[in-house]
């Protein structure tokens, strides 16, 4: 009896692991693009965005057994990603004298063409604080509810609302009034 149990164990573990990895891979496939794009909106650098996304998935795999059921994986992954972005930001501002290369004032905002416009949005985002940027990206690029945004960022709902309003009006003032009314 005991023999049977011990003998069947490795096979069981093996199949548990396979199931686990398959589940995880399916999650990565469903989440990777959106996460990378949000990371890009946060850091304006596709290479870094890809790196942060990979780190997010690695961290999630470490605790996958605990989070795979009963956790909102979408929200969890955003939280991990945003924490990585905040860390990154903190390290940069701690170690460099120049905080970030600020883009020139966006003259191109009313210059017409759509290609200019899309550059301008990312540049304008980069001029906001990282906290404000996070709220805008989660709320308006990802379309999460204010409640979800608040829980992802670990702030109160009213704080999330306030930050959103403030950040939107800053964005408007950077990009020109007609930007959001197009």
């Amino acid at each position: 009896m005991t023999d049977t149990v011990t003998a069947s164990r490795p096979a069981e573990q093996q199949s548990t692991r396979t199931t686990r990895d398959r589940e995880f891979t399916a999650f990565v496939e469903s989440a990777a693009t959106r996460l990378r794009r949000s990371a890009y909106l946060m850091c304006r650098d596709w290479h870094l965005a890809q790196d942060l996304t990979q780190q997010t998935f690695t961290k999630m795999y470490v605790v996958w057994n605990r989070i795979r059921t009963g956790t909102n994986l979408d929200a969890y992954s955003r939280r991990v990603l945003m924490n990585l972005v905040f860390d990154q930001q903190k390290r940069r501002s701690g170690s460099e004298i120049v905080l970030a290369e600020m883009p020139d004032q966006p003259d191109g905002a009313d210059g017409g063409g759509a290609p200019d416009l899309h550059l301008t949005l990312v540049d304008a985002l980069a001029q906001l604080t990282v906290d404000d940027r996070a709220v805008l990206v989660l709320r308006h690029a990802e379309d999460h509810s204010v409640d979800t945004v608040a829980s992802i960022l670990g702030i109160s709902v009213s704080a999330a609302k306030m930050r959103d309003t403030r950040a939107l009006s800053r964005l408007r003032s950077l990009l020109g009034d007609d930007f959001l009314n197009h």
Binding site: D21, F24, T25, V28, E29, M60, Y61
Partner: peptide, 16 residues
């Protein structure tokens, strides 16, 4: 620029 999610999953599983 995109990235292959299967590769990303594989890397996460290896490192994680």
């Amino acid at each position: 620029p995109g990235a292959d999610p299967a590769v990303m999953a594989h890397a996460a599983i290896a490192r994680g």
